Each structure stands twice: as C-alpha cells, then as structure tokens.
Simulated scan of single mutants.
Amino acid sequence: MAVELKTKEHIRGIRKAGRIVAACHQALSKRIAPGVTTLEIDRFVERFMLERGATPAQKGYKGYPYATCASVNEVVCHGFPDSVPLETGDIVTIDMVADLDGWKSDSAWTYAIGKTTASIQKLLLTAEQALIDGIKQAVPGNRLGDIGYAVQSRAERAGFSVVTSFVGHGIGKHMHEYPEIMHVGIPGQGITLEEGMVITIEPIVTAGQPDVYITQDGWTARTRDGAWAAQFEHTVAITKEGPVVLTRWE
C-alpha cells in the first residue's frame, strides 16, 4: 500500500482543522472538573466544532454514536461518553477528530480531575513525554521503528507498559490512512518516513500490563488487570525542517 504524501496546501488544510482541535482541548482544560460528566464534555466539543464550521469526524464513523471518545481511568480508549460525574482523582482521556472542508485532524489528551496521586501524575507525565519523544523521531529518513522505540523506551524506563493493540495512523481526507504507527519498535526498522507524510502519534501508556479487552458495546477497551492508562496524541506533519505538530495548543 502506498503512502499518500501531502502538499503544503494539503498540510495547511489539516493544520486549520488542527487549530480547532487544539483550541477545543485548551477550552476543555478549563472546564473539566469534579462533577462534570463526559456526556456534557461530548456536547461541548460538538458545539465547539460546529460553531467554527467543522464537524466531529468520529460521530457516525463505523456507527460510533458520539463526537468524542471519553475514556476514564482503566479505559484505554474508545470509551462512550456517559452521565456519570467525574470524581476528584479520576483521569479522563478525551479523543476528538475535527473535519474542516474535508481535511481531518486528530488529538487526544488525558486530564486529571482535581488533585491526583503522585503515581498517577508520574503516569501522565511519562505518557506525554513519550509522545514528545516519538514526535522528535518523525523526520525524513528515519523509520517507523524509530518512533516506536522512542515511545517504548520512555514508558518502560519509568516502569510502565505501552498498549500495543492500538496504533497511530496516517490522516488527511480520511481519518485513518496508511501507514499504521506502532508505539513499540526496533530502531531502523519499518517504512522510511518521507517529507509530506502526515501521521498521528498516540501512545497509550498503562501502569500495569498492556493486555486489554473490548466490552459488550463493541468499542470500549479496558485494561485486563484494571490498571489505569493515559494517552496523549498529536497530528504531525513530516517536513524537511523537522516534525510540525498540527494540533499544538497555543
């Protein structure tokens, strides 16, 4: 399968969608608090996008019914928003994809609800730094394995595991494009990164084992051992000047 390389004009379109996603996460960071429900968050995100001329690309994708994925504590990804209030000490990952004029941009962020423990804070910091380490490897001439190795090394050095059941992906006119981006890897292996590729890097890091299962709704993924998990994701363009994060917050 061939990688679809993007022109500078294409990347500008993805960046415009990415700015909406970034602004929405920034707004959410001030709204997420104990007592707020993930269903309220979901409605806020959908309204935020629509008011800016974008649509939530996840809603309706393969029958998915919501504008966001909202994954609390041991839910690693694809959690359904619900009416259960978030409690102090919880963590929640909000994953969203904006479609603006046909171009899509994708970002997930894990938020701590009020004050959390030192061990959970370490999990969040490690997962975010693993994303940053992966992004640094997204340069022309490197291999996909370089990204995965950087992510995996950061997580495992801190005593955590990387969930391998879910991957990043190319993105553009379609939410999921080739190639798949593994978050574990061997340096120098995998396809070569090229200028014009636009990908998501989105490691899920867990405090326990990497094994997960899908619940009866067919979407929600949870850790088998009940350990909590954190995920941070950006949409990244690979350019000759280096990686450009298209969903970076102001």
Rank of each mutant, 00 (worst) to 15 (best):
Q189C: 03
A2Q: 08
I120T: 13
T68D: 05
C69L: 12
Q137Y: 03
L100S: 04
C24D: 00
P210E: 03
Y64T: 06
P56H: 08
L124Q: 05
M1Q: 08
T126E: 07
F48T: 05
E9C: 04
G185R: 01
T68Y: 01
V245D: 14
H25A: 05
E233W: 02
L246H: 07
S83L: 10
G141Y: 08
E4R: 15
R224C: 13
K8P: 11
P179M: 11
P203D: 08
T88W: 04
G159N: 09
T93K: 01
A27W: 04
M1F: 12
I20T: 08
G141M: 05
S165D: 14
V198N: 07
V163E: 06
S29T: 02
G242R: 11
P81C: 10
E194N: 04
E74V: 03
A57F: 00
K115N: 10
W228K: 12
V205A: 07
G185V: 06
T126D: 05
I199C: 04
G190A: 06
I32P: 01
L125C: 02
A155K: 03
A207P: 05
G185Q: 00
I199L: 15
G35K: 00
G35L: 09
R19W: 06
R143F: 04
V21A: 11
G35C: 08
F44K: 07
G89D: 00
D133W: 04
P203H: 06
R222H: 14
I201R: 02
A2T: 14
